[in-house]
């Protein structure tokens, strides 16, 4: 790794101030960023750790019923403490491996917006609100393409608020080597309709499959998806699977998620 300075502020305000330096970079659990630094794909002059900020830790229930997760909360804590939203807890329990889940954070995952990450699917399907140090961003506005989000330079994800659906499930088809999602589908059934978010598949990163949402809002069953398909155009094609294969898997995994949620 290139040399860098390290700071570990104890408050959001101090972290925001530390990130005002040019080339400063926020550090969550480091499970993506540290390997990236080792490969010298990034060379920040300063890393600002967010793991010492107690106001960004933990899971709670908001006044409006939403499950609120602090931006620096590790996946293992979400898995253990988000029991009010079982599909979210199950998703967190399936990210990486136990040691990675003890370090990796929800804020880090959402800020990075890896096209094969799990959390973006949960946030988008749940119509979550991404809370930062100075504003709130709706999930529909937040994800803007592979590794691209609405976050400004130095902006920190301090909390994520998940409305809790009536029924929900996340089904992931794992790429057998990395165990990242080759395709992952999060289905969430709310009183006013169904939302379906797909990760792993598209070159544009996480996306909503609106055709399936309409079908499922009328009839929440796997059979309602019969005859629907996703175009292979724009799907990721690599040695693990072609675009057509991923497009096919989107339908399969959506059906499995509906069956698991029903």
């Amino acid at each position: 790794m290139y040399a860098f300075d390290f700071e570990k502020p104890g408050s959001i305000a101090d972290a925001v101030a530390a990130l005002k330096d040019e080339d400063a970079q926020a550090l969550g659990g480091g499970q993506t960023l540290i390997p990236t630094l080792k490969q010298r794909l990034a060379m920040p002059s300063k890393l600002v750790s967010l793991t010492g900020i107690s106001e960004m830790q933990g899971v709670c229930r908001g006044d409006d019923g939403a499950v609120c997760v602090g931006g620096a909360t590790p996946h293992a804590v979400v898995a253990a403490e988000a029991g009010d939203y079982p599909a979210l807890a199950a998703l967190a329990a399936g990210i990486g491996d136990p040691a990675v889940r003890n370090r990796g954070t929800i804020g880090g995952s959402l800020a990075n917006n890896d096209p094969a990450a799990c959390y973006p699917a949960a946030a988008l399907a749940s119509a979550a609100t991404i809370v930062t140090d100075h504003r709130e961003i709706a999930a529909d506005d937040y994800f803007q393409g592979m590794f691209t989000t609405a976050l400004d330079e130095g902006e920190i994800v301090t909390e994520v608020r998940f409305p809790v659906p009536e029924k929900a499930a996340y089904m992931k088809f794992e790429q057998p080597a990395s165990r990242f999602a080759l395709v992952g589908v999060f289905v969430a059934k709310f009183a006013d309709g169904v939302r379906v978010a797909v990760t792993g598949a598209s070159e544009e990163g996480v996306f909503r499959w609106t055709e399936a949402e309409q079908a499922l809002s009328g009839d929440f069953s796997a059979a309602a998806l019969d005859g629907l398909s996703v175009p292979a155009d724009g799907m990721i094609g690599d040695l693990h699977g072609s675009g057509a294969y991923r497009a096919h898997l989107v339908v399969v995994m959506t059906k499995r998620a509906v069956e698991a949620a029903a």
Binding site: G30, I34, P35, A99, V100
Partner: peptide
């Protein structure tokens, strides 16, 4: 807690 010491500063 178990962590990977190669991926923690």
């Amino acid at each position: 807690q178990a962590v990977k010491a190669c991926t923690m500063l």
